[in-house]
Structures are given as C-alpha cells and as structure tokens.
Design a protein around this nucleic acid. Structure first.
Length: 419
DNA sequence: GAATTACTAACTACCACAGGGTTCG
DNA sequence: ATCGAACCCTGTGGTAGTTAGTAAT
C-alpha cells in the first residue's frame, strides 16, 4: 500500500504496470520500460489514488481522484449522490511517452514531472495510447495494420465483428481490465498484433448498451479475442483454448434463465457443459473460487460463478490451473477484477441485470451463434518456430515420433514412406 | 415422434527430443 | 556470489482412436 515507487522506493509512484504488477514513478517507469521491445509493450496507467495499489480505471471529476475499480465501486456504488459523480475513463499507454505526451493523455493530472529522455524516446513511434473516453463507452476498439484506430462505429456495423459485442460484455462482467483478458503482458498478440481487433473499454459504470437490443442481435462469440494469450505465464499450465469456452455449454445457456426461479438461479447446470470450461456451478457463493482454492497446491479447476440475476443468466468461468497459492495479483494480472475474485459483488452492465430481451432476439442470437460455430476455424499459433522446424523433419511411425535411428514409416523430408 | 443406425467432423493422446528454466552442489 | 551439471517441463506434427453431432431410416 506504499505510495512509493516499487522500483526505486524513493519517488512517489504514479503509474501502475499490470505486466510487472508494480507501481512506478515516471522516471523508473521510463527506465524499466525502455529496456527492450517487450517491456515497451507493457500497458500502464495511473495508480489508484485511494488504495495506491491497483491500476486506476476512472477519474472522478467531482473528487479529482483516480480510482481503481474496487475503490470506484466502494466510493460510488454506495450512496446515490456519489454514484452520480461524473467520471472519466483513464487512458492507458505503452511505449515510452514523454512528459508532454502524458500530460496530453492525462490532462487532469496537474503535475507530471519532467522525465529524463532516453534512447527509448526514439521509439516513440511505438507508443500506443488507449484513447477511450466516456463518450466512447462500450465500443469495440480496433486497430488496423498500421496501428491507427478504426472508427468503432464502422466496426460495430461490421457483421464479421458482431461477436465482439458479446465478448466485450462477457469480458466486462468478468474483469475490470482496461484490456480484457488478452491484453496483458509481453505477448505480441496483446499490443502489437494489429490484425485482430482489440476490445478496449474501461468505463465500468456508464456503458449504455443494454437498452439497445441490437446488442443482443449481434450476440455471438467466436471473433472476439478472449484468449488468455499469456495464460501459461500467468498460471504456469497449458490451457484449453478459450474458444472452447462456449463450445459445449453453448451460448444458449446464457439465455435460459428468464424462467429460472430465484431458488436455483445460482445453479444453472447445462449437462452438456459439465465437463468443460464454462458451466453452471452449484454454489450459493457468488464466487466459488474459494472452495476450489481450499486445497492449496492442487490444480483444481476454479470456477467463477456469476450469480444469475433477473434477466441475466448465471455465468461461471473456469480457470484451470489456478491454485490456492495464487495471489490476488495473479488474478489481477489475468485481467480479473480483484473485487470479483475476492468476493465483492460483480459488476453488471447497466440494464443487463434488470432488463430482459425478447424471445425473437434470443432465437436470432442463438441462430447466429450456431451458424458461426459451424463455419469458424481456429488457426493454430506456433509459439516456437524452432520446435516446429524440428518436428517438421522428425521421422514418425504412425504419426508418432520415433527415436533417431529407429525404423520409421514416414519421413517428412522424403514425402514418402520409409524412404 | 421416438429410436436406431450410419456417417462425418472434431477432438485427444501418443511419440522423441531440443531448449528453456530450475535446483543443487 | 558464481558456475556448471543434472533434472524437469514444454511444445512441436501426423496418425489413430474416441467422441459428438447430424442425417437417414
């Protein structure tokens, strides 16, 4: 909870690096993140003025403070007067912006001390600033191949990207991260893979989406970049592709609660989904992580259960490999809100919890989901070219690798059998 | 309409081993 | 504190076997 820089321990910390899980002064931020190309990709944002430990997501205009989701929730969720405070989304950035650049993106911060210029300065072209604002709430944030932003409205109207709405909603219900799910750490897919649209939204209160039924009309999942790109770095184990998240449970499970009684609203069990990553979890605890964590050292699947509310289904996410030894920081690094993970009430997009949608919209959404499920392809990503090159020349017997020198029936180099 | 069968698509395990990371002396 | 050896773990592709989904009967 120290407001001092985690690196130098002398200066007051100003920015939070999610990848490093560290609060840094601007000087150290610059030094640390100019070290190499990977560190330059780290997304940073202001440190919460309240807890001085979490990344701030919003700026309360009335109180002139930057708040993380926890503190925003605590401070603005309680009283009616406070909840009416005008809040502004805080931009995050990567690269090594100068003080003037920071002043520009954080105009509300009065004092940004000068930063020593470094070699990183010449890499300013790499700097990326997440330009969200209150008026841009709930709009998929895309980048084209040149790194320039694509107008979100055009993207929202793009049928090919219609799934992002659902992904954004899902991500927002499970994380407060400025870059939901995939946007954390050094993985290229996070900040430099400009071919895939990235969802960037951070305002946690004023997402005016649910009243628009087109949101549900565009309800499907597969194009959304929900994959935990750096899952292994986060959890230390391999994972099933997140695309499988809805493979078996089916999106229908998310629509099937309108008739659900309050008694079982927390326990939506889809038989087809029991064994997979997303499932209804019988628990009265909004977060069943605790129970799954109760056995330290075991790699039990942890289920995050979002309790059903009227008009919105119970939702649980399973994170294989989360162990009881995992810290809150680990969860936050994976994009999960500590509030969510630590038992505080989850956030629902306004309206989702109280509104319902028509059966026609539901049927349409389900139909669209099924259609896309039929046609989608998940391309394999090669992480280690050297290993691929090795595998490409390995001799095999019935597809299996064989020891060097042993008999084989397939040699990729010969393209023939037993050459 | 329900039950059974046939077919197709998708998924998973298996194998050896280089290379990265960790532990220990 | 540093170094090297030993050990552990991961990921890579083609095939076979299994499972799930769909269509036909």
């Amino acid at each position: 909870m120290s407001p001092l820089c985690d690196f130098c321990g002398e200066q007051r910390s100003m920015v939070y690096c999610r990848s490093d899980a560290a609060c840094l002064c601007l000087s150290c931020d610059r030094n640390v993140h100019s070290a190499n190309a990977l560190s330059r990709r780290h997304w940073r944002t202001l440190v919460c003025d309240r807890c001085s430990a979490q990344p701030a997501l919003v700026r309360c205009i009335e109180e002139s403070v930057s708040l993380c989701q926890n503190c925003d929730w605590t401070g603005h969720g309680g009283s009616a007067s406070a909840s009416g405070h005008k809040r502004q989304t805080i931009n995050c950035y990567s690269g090594c912006p100068s003080a003037s650049e920071l002043s520009r993106i954080w105009s509300f911060v009065l004092e940004i001390p000068p930063i020593a210029e470094s070699s990183c300065e010449q890499g300013m072209g790499m700097m990326s600033i997440n330009e969200n604002s209150v008026s841009d709430n709930w709009r998929p944030h895309a980048e084209n191949s040149s790194g320039a932003d694509i107008p979100c409205d055009s993207m929202a109207n793009n049928v090919e990207n219609d799934d992002n709405n659902f992904g954004a909603w899902l991500a927002s219900t499970s994380t407060s991260d400025v870059h939901p799910m995939s946007c954390s750490g050094d993985q290229p897919a996070c900040s430099v893979d400009s071919t895939a649209p990235k969802l960037c939204f951070s305002d946690t209160k004023d997402l005016g989406i649910s009243k628009n039924e087109s949101f549900y009309d565009d309800f499907s999942v597969d194009d959304v970049d929900l994959t935990f790109e750096n899952y292994e770095e986060l959890f230390g184990v391999s994972h099933n592709p997140t695309e499988q998240l809805f493979e078996d449970a089916g999106i229908e499970s998310f629509f099937e609660t309108k008739e659900t009684s309050a008694a079982n609203s927390n326990c939506q069990v889809n038989p087809a989904a029991e064994a997979r990553t997303i499932q209804g979890t019988c628990s009265n605890n909004p977060l069943s992580v605790d129970s799954a964590m109760s056995n330290p050292g075991t790699k039990a699947d942890s289920n995050l259960c979002f309790p059903a509310k009227e008009g919105r289904p119970a939702l649980s996410l399973s994170f294989s490999g989360l162990t009881g030894e995992s810290s809150a920081g680990d969860y936050q690094d994976c994009g999960m809100s500590p509030a969510l993970l630590m038992g505080e009430p989850p956030w629902y997009p306004p309206g989702l919890e109280s509104s319902s949608f028509s059966p026609a919209s539901r049927d349409s959404a389900v139909l669209r989901y099924k259609e896309k499920k039929k046609t989608r392809k998940f391309e394999k990503k090669i992480r280690y070219e050297s290993r691929k090159a090795r595998a490409d020349i390995r001799k095999r017997v019935k597809g299996r690798f064989v020891k060097a020198g042993d008999a084989y029936d397939y040699d990729p180099l010969c393209q023939t059998r037993s050459c």
